[in-house]
Design a protein around this nucleic acid. Sequence first.
DNA 1: AATATGACTGTCT
DNA 2: AAGACAGCCATAT
Length: 116
Amino acid sequence: MAGVDHEEYVERVLAVVEQIPPGRVMSYGAIAEAVGVGGPRQVGRVMSLDSGGTPWWRVVRADGGLPDCHGGEALSHHRAEGTPLRASGRVDMAVAAWWPAEEEQPTTGSGSVGPL
DNA sequence: AATATGACTGTCT
DNA sequence: AAGACAGCCATAT
């Protein structure tokens, strides 16, 4: 770890997740990069520990697939928030992909960032 | 201390 | 497109 306590890590991950605006999503790996500590699995672990109050459904896999464990529930939230969904029932990562620092976003240039 | 597991990711076949 | 394989980091047994 990069010198952050367990609580600090959780707080940091949740902070990033809560920064995700409605209609946007972030992959586990992206959050791990944003936090700069741990890996995608640790982010997923924090989500599993989350009891509520956190928009966990805005956190998706790198391929845009929603967490298998909760599936339909996340999909309902996405439809309610107007998240760009693909015909396959997955999130359209080409449009919904988001990054806390859009100016340094690794995938800039396709207009896939900024308020919808 | 070692092995197994998990709300993951990326590459190769 | 789909499955196999390896890499990754922390917790549980």
